[in-house]
């Protein structure tokens, strides 16, 4: 490789650093757990860099600086020290450091309790405020208060999924028939992206969610709003959309609190209009996206467990989209 090509490659690799920030990066932490994890990463990386430099330094020394053969005794000592003693000491240190952060990562949450269930291919999200007899149900979006440790219960419906919100913490599998747990303590207010991290079928790559962190006061206000029933439609278009929604049987799979729609097969749509994503991160909550989704879900998410409604006329679908968009 010429020098110029090497320099160009170096510059190009700098581009990769751009991926270190953003809404889904463990290296751009916004929570106590992810901050610990990113510290662990930098510590390990620094250690690896030192070892790499030392090995190459030795190689350089043996090749270029002093290529004469060593004494057998010296070589044996070097192999023993560098091949047995050094790795044992270094690995013990790294393992000890890595393990020492475990208790914090698994600390019990003493704040909000949330239950997240992995479905094909979306997340059911149930908030259990103190003393609640019934959860406040939502989907595909996790809202957490900053400054306290929320306890997150993880379940799965049919197949294994994995809950991963890199900006806030590590990942934990969701396993059918088993209750896993994790806890997260956000430190910064912001919007983040999580992703299912265990292959779970055709639309696994389209199984994401958004997370929002709010100050405790904002969170309390948000939770009150979330617990309320859905807003009634305000325009004629939205009203006819609601009627079409009920007439088409969408309510057999979807619940909209405050309406006859009570289905629990698909995501709860009560406050869909205030959410940051549609269909588990595949789309946005805009009218064109809603129309595209209702018309043919599998065209957007392969094998999606919702039937296509492309037999309806576009006006009906547009009306339903207007209704759903207004569910704030």
């Amino acid at each position: 490789m010429t020098r110029r090509a090497a320099a160009a490659l170096c510059l190009l690799s700098l581009l990769a650093l751009a991926a270190c920030t953003g809404p889904q990066s463990a290296l751009d932490p916004a929570g106590r757990d992810s901050a610990t994890l990113s510290r662990l990463f930098w510590f390990m990386l620094a250690g690896a860099a030192v070892l790499w430099a030392a090995m190459n330094g030795l190689m350089f020394y043996a090749w270029r600086v002093d290529p004469r053969p060593m004494s057998v005794r010296g070589a044996r000592t070097l192999i023993f020290a560098g091949g047995v003693v050094l790795p044992t000491v270094v690995l013990s240190g790294l393992l000890g450091y890595g393990l020492s952060i475990m208790p914090d990562q698994r600390a019990p949450g003493d704040g909000l309790r949330v239950e997240v269930t992995g479905e094909q291919w979306w997340f059911r999200v149930d908030y259990w405020p103190d003393g609640a007899a019934e959860p406040i149900r939502s989907a595909n979006e996790l809202v957490l208060p900053v400054g306290s440790r929320s306890e997150i219960t993880l379940k799965a419906d049919q197949v294994i999924h994995s809950f991963w919100l890199p900006s806030l913490g590590g990942k934990t599998d969701m396993i059918p028939g088993r209750v896993n747990r994790m806890s997260l303590e956000p430190t910064d207010v912001g919007e983040f992206r999580g992703q299912c991290a265990e292959f779970c079928g055709e639309s696994h790559a389209w199984m994401a969610f958004t997370a929002k962190t709010l100050s405790p006061d904002d969170f309390a206000a948000w939770l009150t709003a979330e617990a309320a029933p859905a807003a009634p439609p305000r325009t004629d278009l939205a009203r006819s959309g609601r009627d079409a929604f009920m007439a088409q049987g969408c309510g057999g799979c979807h619940a909209i609190r405050g309406t006859p729609a009570r289905g629990q097969v698909g995501p709860d749509l009560t406050h869909l209009g205030s959410r940051l994503n549609l269909a588990a991160g595949a789309l946005e909550v805009t009218r064109p996206d809603l129309i595209a989704w209702i018309t043919d879900p599998s065209a957007i998410k392969p094998a999606a467990r919702m039937p296509a409604y492309d037999h309806l006329d576009t006006g009906t679908i547009a009306a339903m989209a207007a209704y759903l968009e207004g569910l704030r």
């Binding site: 044992t88 690995l91 013990s92 000890g96 393990l99 020492s100 475990m102 208790p103 019990p108 747990r181």
Partner: peptide
């Protein structure tokens, strides 16, 4: 035997650090 010694210590270390069943 030397390798096994180190390995047995390594597989015990999580039990010293984890501290909980969670």
């Amino acid at each position: 035997a030397c390798l096994s010694f180190v390995a047995v210590v390594f597989s015990t270390m999580p039990a010293w650090f984890a501290g909980t069943c969670l």
